[in-house]
């Protein structure tokens, strides 16, 4: 069928608006990347647009020379991995029983879980609680309090509920118990979903900032985001610039800040395109059913 003129105009406007929004989403990234690879003086003269001017790697070199930044990065990598593994385990342990339609006491258990989405103690009582549990200034304060997200748990639970009953029933007739069904049948069918929540958990730990601000004061346990924040606030930038004249302070900060930001985005950027197809599907299933 031939499209009417009205429809064609409508379509063109739609495409234009969508492209405009998408370009706005992308521009800041391109600008930051361009700045990070540019010569500091070109940045000072505001010459950098969306492509590096006088290609220059010194900003990245000074990142790697900065011991405390590299240490924070390693620390963040280690706790992100531990956090993600623990989170997936406990999320599955919570979601699987609650996804069984026959589970007795299911309603009170669900209320117990969902209540926490609407009510919390607030910042101060939570801080005092972490302190009372003896977690303050330990890496566990960054791992345990957030290791089960109710939102992610509901996504997984809906996904489990969507697995055709017959597949599981055929196994339970053979006398398999719930754990065997989970490990042998349900989990292998849920790889996409598990990859999705692994991404969500890993990103939330990698990007998390507030908890390290509140619960950790030891410098050896500063996460990458806390270091970045310090850097962006510029108080620390001087330690990068032993050999640089004082009047150019600000410019140097700009390229180094940009390089640090790009650098800390790399893991997310590498994982993200591979997992996109899964997480959109996962979130959709979860939101339709949940």
């Amino acid at each position: 069928m031939k499209e009417s003129i009205g429809d064609r105009i409508f379509k063109a406007i739609t495409v234009m608006i969508v492209v405009f929004v998408a370009v706005c989403c992308l521009l800041p990234f391109l600008y930051i990347i361009a700045v990070s690879f540019s010569d500091k003086n070109a940045v000072l003269r505001n010459e950098v647009f969306l492509w590096p001017v006088h290609y220059d790697l010194t900003a990245y070199q000074s990142i790697f020379r900065n011991q405390s930044l590299v240490r924070s990065m390693w620390f963040t990598i280690v706790i992100t991995i531990i956090y993600t593994l623990i989170s997936i385990l406990i999320t599955v342990l919570c979601a699987y029983p609650l996804s069984r339609p026959h589970l007795k006491l299911k309603k009170p258990l669900l209320i117990y879980v969902l209540f926490t989405m609407y009510f919390s103690g607030g910042m101060i009582p939570e801080y005092v609680n972490i302190k009372n549990l003896g977690l303050l200034d330990t890496a566990w304060a960054l791992i345990l309090p957030g290791c089960l997200s109710t939102y992610n748990m509901i996504l997984v639970k809906s996904f489990f509920q969507n697995i055709p009953r017959e597949v599981e029933e055929s196994a339970s007739i053979d006398g398999a118990n719930d754990l065997v069904i989970l490990v042998r049948i349900v989990l292998p069918l849920s790889k996409a979903m598990l990859a999705t929540i692994a991404l969500f958990y890993a990103v939330s730990r990698w990007n998390g900032f507030m908890d390290s601000l509140l619960y950790v004061t030891k410098e050896s346990m500063y996460t990458l985001q806390v270091r970045l924040r310090q850097l962006i606030q510029s108080s620390q930038v001087t330690e990068f610039m032993e050999d640089i004249p004082q009047n150019k302070e600000k410019v140097i900060a700009e390229t180094i800040k940009a390089a640090c930001m790009v650098f800390s985005m790399i893991p997310v950027m590498v994982l993200y395109p591979w997992l996109q197809k899964y997480f959109v599907k996962g979130v959709m299933i979860g939101s339709v059913k949940g």
Binding site: I90, Y112, V113, V128
Partner: peptide, 22 residues
């Protein structure tokens, strides 16, 4: 199934319910 729920129930208690009386 109930054994599995042990850890999550403890988690919610320690990090979500325990702060509320605070």
């Amino acid at each position: 199934l109930y054994a599995m729920l042990g850890l999550p129930v403890i988690f919610y208690f320690l990090f979500h319910y325990l702060p509320i009386p605070g």
